[in-house]
Amino acid sequence: MKTLETRAVTKIFKSGSTEVRALTDISLSFEAGELTVVMGPSGSGKTTLLSILGCVLSPTSGDITILGQKVNGLSEKERRRLRLGKIGFIFQDFNLLDALTVRENVAMANQLRGDSRAAGLKNSEKLLTDVGLCHRLDFLPKDLSQGEKQRVAIARAFMNDPNIIIADEPTANLDSRTGQDIIAKIGELGENKTTIIATHDERITQLADRVVRIEDGRAVEMS
């Protein structure tokens, strides 16, 4: 099943009088149950592409369709609702909330969608057990290792059972062994989901169903 599709997506950033063409004419489609790795040199446009796929950024031209819904014309409010329910995000620098415990950080995803705190906390336990953190439930992020922090972020991304997982360089701050574990975990939990991971790490491609290479803002399919 096709979950995500771009057609002739171009993104041009304007800063002052200069224009930066970050993406040019990208047409890609993504299936459920597929793990896609997006590779490319620094500045090639990976983050820009993932932001557009994740409904965080609007393209300058071209169409995006998510789960059959065209998202070009959506308001910021509608985009937020779409992100909250359908898309799980994993960031390079984890982006956990410092004041909340592991369990509360993960529960927050549920709470943002209107669930009670108690329900959120309860749901978070299962996912945290899945990512191997059942012994760290009440830790604060500052007391976790980098790998553990990323696993909290993974649990959070999966909390609302999204259709799409978007991860921008989730292993950049981790050693290679931990990085491999993290990608394996994302793959395992996202078995039936559309998972898109941007990375510099060649080794991750071994775990991918598909590799898309971005060069100078253009996509080259590697398969």
């Binding site: 965080v56 409010k77 937020r80 609702r81 779409l82 992100r83 909250l84 329910g85 898309i87 995000f89 982006n95 909330l97 410092d98 927050m108 995803a109 943002l112 959070r156």
Partner: peptide
């Protein structure tokens, strides 16, 4: 930044 994270995850303005 933390509020930004919440908004990026999809939090509503009301939250």
């Amino acid at each position: 930044k933390e509020y930004g994270i919440l908004l990026a995850l999809g939090a509503s303005s009301a939250s």
